[in-house]
Design a protein around this nucleic acid. Sequence first.
DNA 1: TATAGTCGCTTACGATTGGTAAGCGGGGCC
DNA 2: GGCCCCGCTTACCAATCGTAAGCGACTATA
Lengths: 126, 126
Amino acid sequence: MPAFCPRFHRAIELIGRRWTGVILRALRSGRCRFSEITEAVPGLSDRLLSERLKELEAEGIVERLVHPEFPVRVEYRLTEKGRALDQVMDGIASWAERWIDPEDAVSTADAEAAPVATAVSGANPR
Amino acid sequence: MPAFCPRFHRAIELIGRRWTGVILRALRSGRCRFSEITEAVPGLSDRLLSERLKELEAEGIVERLVHPEFPVRVEYRLTEKGRALDQVMDGIASWAERWIDPEDAVSTADAEAAPVATAVSGANPR
DNA sequence: TATAGTCGCTTACGATTGGTAAGCGGGGCC
DNA sequence: GGCCCCGCTTACCAATCGTAAGCGACTATA
C-alpha cells in the first residue's frame, strides 16, 4: 500500500471539509431543502451551507433542483456519486458509535450550537 | 435515521481535519517516524504534522513512543481505536478510486506539493 | 399603499486556522 | 569551534470560518 495516494487525499479533504459530512448525512436522511438542512444541523449557518452545497454540486455529489413555486423551493439531492458515499458514512457512524464518547460529542455539539459567553473573556486559550 | 448525530459529527470533523486522513494513511502504511511522514506526504509541513499528531494522540487514535537513542527517535503508532478506522479509510479509498478523476487529484496534489515558481514572485498584492 | 414575512442566498467583517520560513535544544561528527 | 541531524516550536501573514445583516422575488395582512 502506498503511503500517499492523490485520489484518496482529494477524496478525504473533500468530504472532510467543515460541515460537509453532516450535510451529506442530512441529505441522505431525507432533508432536501436548504432550510431543512440548516434546521437539522445545529450550528450550521446559511453562509457555510450555501458554500458547501456549491462545492458538492461542482463535484457532482449533489444536484440542485429549483421549483419556481411560491417562496422559491430549492431541492438538493445526492447523485449516484453522492449515494456511493453511503457506505463510507455508515463506516464512520459505526466507528463513532463504538469509539466516540457520547458526552464528548454532546459537549462539542453544544459548543458549536451555543458558544455564548465562552469566547470573549479567555486570557490566552492557546 | 436521524438527520444529525453528535457522535458522527465529532468523528467526521476529527478525521476530516486538514491532513489528518493522509497522516493516518501514512501511519497505516508503515511510516511511523515524524520525518518519514513528512517525506511521504507532499505538502505537509512540520508544524501541521506536529499539531495533528498531538490531536490524534489526545484522542487516543495514535500513541507516541520515544526511543532515547541516537538522534532522538520518535515513533507514532495507531492504537486499537486508530486501527478501527482502517475500514473507513478503505471505504474512502474505494470511493476515490471509482469516482475521483486521477487528473483532478494529481493537479490538486501538485498544487500542494509544488507551488514552486508561482508563489515567490511578486504580483500578489493581497 | 404600506408593512411585514418567507426562502435562499450574498456581502461585510472580525476571529480562528493554515502555510511558510526560521529557530532551538540536544546530541554526534569533523 | 562549526556543522549536521531530528523533532518540534515560534513568528508572521494569508485563507477560511462564524456572525450578522441585507437582498430579491413574492405573498399575506391591514
